[in-house]
Amino acid sequence: MAIRCFVLDDEPLATDLLRDYIGRLPDLELTGISNSPSQAFSILQYTPVDVVFLDIQMPRLTGFELLRPLAYRPKVIFTTAFREYALDSYEFDVLDFLVKPVSFERFCQAVGKIYRFLPTPAGLPEVPQAAVAVHEYQYFKVNKEMVKLFLKDILWIESLKDYVRIHTPSGPLVSYMRISYLEEKLPPDRFLRIHKSFIVALHHIQAISALYIRINNREIPIGRIYKARLDEVLQKDRPEAGLGSRL
């Protein structure tokens, strides 16, 4: 199912840019675009969407004032040239806060959060977590491209200072991103940092010892300060009969 998006900004150049960005991603559907807050409010009241890309400072009606009286609360990605609004924006169901000019890379990072936080549509049964995982992905900047990578395909992640090497079954990808930033963005029930330089995908673990975790026949070291947390996570997954001594 496509993610229904609406774009509101009083600057036509800003809406044109977001229109272009949304058009590059096949899972996003642009259902409406407007440079008028009052017009946008009328549309949004009767045409619910999943995500609104919303400017804050606009004539006659701010982004905050537009959201408050809506009969429903869409997810929001704020776009603005004014950084001082960041704190106030978190009164709402905010996925991200983009400061203009917005790059495509930064836009893709914000879009990657949509899949983690959008609720199951009303009237539909809850989707099993395993099924949800198949459709979860993020975009990573690799060379000059934004590469779509499904989270289920990530084996482990290795820090290279300001870069990360993301290991997948088809080979590694190197992306400009700190491992600490990526650690915050990945689902904590599926990914765990086990070393200052490594994050592992729990569902890809083949074997565990006191010193390393083996994934895809590669031994990944366990850092001393991360060992207690690792043991805590693994203990939850063990059956009551036990699997031997603890790490």
Rank of each mutant, 00 (worst) to 15 (best):
A40Q: 06
P48V: 00
G32A: 06
M58F: 02
S42G: 12
L28G: 02
A40T: 07
N35H: 09
L61H: 06
L30D: 01
S36R: 09
V52M: 06
S36T: 11
V51M: 08
L30P: 02
V49R: 00
E29D: 14
Q39P: 05
V49N: 00
M58A: 05
M58N: 02
M58Y: 01
I33S: 03
T31H: 11
Y46W: 11
R60G: 10
Q45P: 07
L61F: 10
Q45W: 12
D55N: 04
V52P: 04
D27K: 14
Q45H: 13
T31M: 13
L54C: 05
T31N: 08
Q57W: 12
L61V: 13
L61T: 08
P48C: 00
E29P: 07
Q39N: 12
I56Q: 08
Q45C: 13
N35D: 12
P59S: 11
I43Q: 13
Y46A: 14
P37L: 02
R60E: 15
P26R: 11
S36N: 15
S38F: 13
L44P: 00
D27T: 12
S34Q: 05
A40C: 08
S38N: 07
S42L: 14
F41N: 05
F41Q: 11
V52T: 05
Q39A: 15
L30K: 01
S38C: 07
D50H: 15
E29T: 08
Q45T: 14
R60L: 09
S34Y: 05
F53K: 04
D55Q: 04
L44R: 01
M58T: 07
F41S: 11
L61C: 08
I56D: 05
I43Y: 15
F53H: 06
I43D: 12
N35K: 05
T47K: 13
D27Y: 14
D27F: 15
Q45D: 09
L30R: 01
Q57H: 14
P37N: 02
V52W: 04
I43E: 14
V52S: 03
L44Y: 01
E29Y: 14
V49W: 00
D55M: 03
I56C: 12
Q39R: 09
V52Q: 03
E29S: 15
S38P: 06
Q45M: 14
P26Q: 12
V49C: 00
M58E: 01
E29W: 12
